[in-house]
């Protein structure tokens, strides 16, 4: 299932946040959205998943989601969004309970995704007992449980310290190599973008417009073998972002 974002514009009151965004998300690819803070990248992601309505433009899905998919467009949130009163397993079963699968089937799926994210030993842990990285793993397991057609990741690693971020990024890469999921990945971290993105979309400062789309042709599994190439791309992206970030900073100071 592909996603097509066509001509999306939006404003909050008098503040125009997005202008004329056109974007195609191809099945099996990870599209990274980067841009200075306040450029509307998270807002765009909320439009893609139908959590908010744009003032104009629309998001269409092309083709049917794969069989067995319970929630085609599934988010992974920056703040994890785990229910603090449910255990890891309970948080995962939460999103399965409304589908009338039956107790045994739910248990089977929960066990399966916990194993796939190496969380089996933590199935009965409450969120407050887990570190940030483990919480995000639970949230990833929850997202996998509904067999999404496209993962919508809103800065999934930004709330974590840098070591945990590296570990989890490796996990995400492993996961992609095994499952070839489709994702729209919002981040402000360029290293993340060049490690995990097949395509990086650079948004300008507010109102967010697409400034450039950079295709990264090195396969994800080989990226670490080409550090110079990655560094070149990263520097190119940084040059694009730099002016926007500077200008965005000054704009905020004016307010």
């Amino acid at each position: 299932m592909d996603l097509h974002i066509s001509d999306i514009s939006h404003s909050y009151g008098a503040t125009e946040v997005l202008r004329g965004i056109d974007l195609h998300i191809t099945a099996g690819q990870i599209v990274c959205l980067i841009g200075p803070s306040g450029c509307g990248k998270s807002t765009l992601l909320r439009f893609v998943g139908g959590l908010e309505r744009p003032r104009s433009g629309r998001v269409v899905q092309i083709g049917e989601p794969p069989a067995g998919c319970l929630n085609p467009l599934t988010y992974i949130f920056q703040d994890f969004a785990l229910l603090p009163w449910r255990t890891a397993a309970g948080n995962i079963s939460l999103v399965l309970e409304d589908h009338g699968l039956g107790r045994a089937a739910v248990r089977e799926i929960v066990d399966d995704v916990l194993a796939r994210t190496k969380l089996t030993d933590f199935r009965d842990a409450l969120p407050r007992q887990l570190s940030g990285g483990m919480k995000q793993r639970v949230a990833i397991a929850r997202a996998l449980a509904v067999r999404p057609a496209c993962l919508l990741m809103d800065e999934p690693l930004s709330a974590l310290d840098s070591q945990t971020r590296d570990l989890l990024l490796d996990d995400l890469l492993d996961l992609w190599l095994r499952e070839r999921f489709t994702a729209c990945y919002v981040t402000h971290n360029l290293e993340e973008a060049v490690r995990i993105g097949h395509r990086v979309v650079v948004l300008s400062r507010r109102p967010g417009q697409i400034r450039e789309v950079v295709d990264l042709d090195i396969p994800l599994e080989d990226r670490l073998d080409h550090p110079e190439a990655l560094e070149t791309r990263r520097r190119h992206l940084w040059e694009l972002m730099r002016e926007e970030a500077l200008a965005a900073d000054k704009e905020l100071a004016d307010v």
């Binding site: 959590l51 467009l73 703040d79 969004a81 229910l83 939460l94 999103v95 309970e97 409304d98 929850r142």
Partner: peptide, 21 residues
């Protein structure tokens, strides 16, 4: 509100969101 939005994003029903979140 993020938890409620999470519930909506996973397609939970209105009653489920009220009862479980």
């Amino acid at each position: 509100r993020n938890l409620i939005r999470m519930g909506q994003s996973f397609g939970l029903g209105w009653f489920s969101i009220v009862r479980k979140i």
